[in-house]
């Protein structure tokens, strides 16, 4: 993967340039998008469906933001990776081109988007006097999330080439996954089976870590994040293995 860093780098910058080409706000969308997303969820859960919440989640807007922003990175990476090999079929079929680069570029481009959205989040955190030295731990969950996302994206992108159904199913799986991750609610509030589900969900640990580091200013979820890290490595190993297994079929099946 390292060999292709120049290629990945230029493809990512192309991806970012191309994404907002032709829109009025251009790059500004990277900031506006998370804001609008936040506004939607904020409106739904504070105005339309006000629920009783523990005071530790206040201000709820900012709490939501801490979870939604990294989740968006995860979700768009995985969702976009389903189509990326098919869209890039020309390259795989007609040019000697390392197919995994396409998947990596998708994940990295979304990572950049995520990082571009971070200043907005930091602004809100600062506004609420929430920024603490713990924020410096931010790269930890980010790394775990990146590795996990990449592994899953590799798996999904190769699988989709053979089963286009994945594209359709995945949308719903990701939706369900979103609600099975403590983004709208507190990790600690989950009970019974839900609790078990959250424990088995690496993304839950990642999100909780973000929330603790950024929102609570107190990071205690070491074990959870560590386990998620192991899961991420396993996911990456599996994704890479799976991709490798199917590599030779990609050029024919795309």
């Amino acid at each position: 993967m390292f060999r292709y860093r120049l290629l990945i780098q230029s493809l990512v910058s192309r991806e970012l340039k191309a994404r907002y080409r032709g829109s009025v706000l251009g790059f500004f969308w990277s900031f506006v998008n998370p804001l609008l997303l936040l506004l939607t969820y904020g409106l739904v859960f504070t105005v339309m469906l006000p629920v009783r919440r523990s005071p530790t989640m206040e201000p709820y807007f900012v709490f939501l933001f801490c979870g939604i922003l990294p989740w968006t990175f995860f979700q768009s990476s995985v969702a976009e990776s389903t189509g990326v090999l098919i869209a890039g079929g020309n390259l795989i079929k007609k040019v000697l081109f390392p197919a995994e680069v396409l998947t990596v570029v998708t994940v990295v481009a979304n990572l950049v988007h995520f990082l571009l959205g971070m200043p907005v989040l930091l602004f809100f955190l600062a506004w609420n006097h929430r920024i603490t030295p713990e924020a410096l731990l931010f790269p930890l969950p980010l790394l775990v999330q990146f590795v996990f996302t990449l592994g899953l994206a590799l798996f999904v992108s190769a699988l989709t080439v053979h089963f286009r159904d994945v594209q359709n199913i995945l949308t719903h799986i990701l939706h369900l996954w979103f609600f099975s991750t403590p983004i709208l609610f507190l990790y600690g509030d989950a009970l019974g089976g839900m609790r078990l589900l959250l424990r088995l969900n690496p993304m839950a640990h990642v999100i909780v870590s973000y929330q603790q580091i950024l929102f609570d200013g107190e990071f205690t979820h070491w074990k959870g994040l560590g386990a998620a890290g192991l899961a991420a490595i396993a996911m990456y190993a599996f994704g890479a293995f799976f991709f490798e297994r199917l590599r030779d079929t990609l050029a024919e099946e795309v």
Binding site: R14, N90, L91, V95
Partner: peptide, 22 residues
């Protein structure tokens, strides 16, 4: 296939650079 890796939205200049790297 000529220009297989070209991205329609970006300029010829950038495409040359990326295609060359590819």
């Amino acid at each position: 296939e000529l220009g297989a890796g070209f991205h329609p939205e970006i300029s010829g200049r950038e495409n040359v650079a990326i295609n060359g790297i590819m």
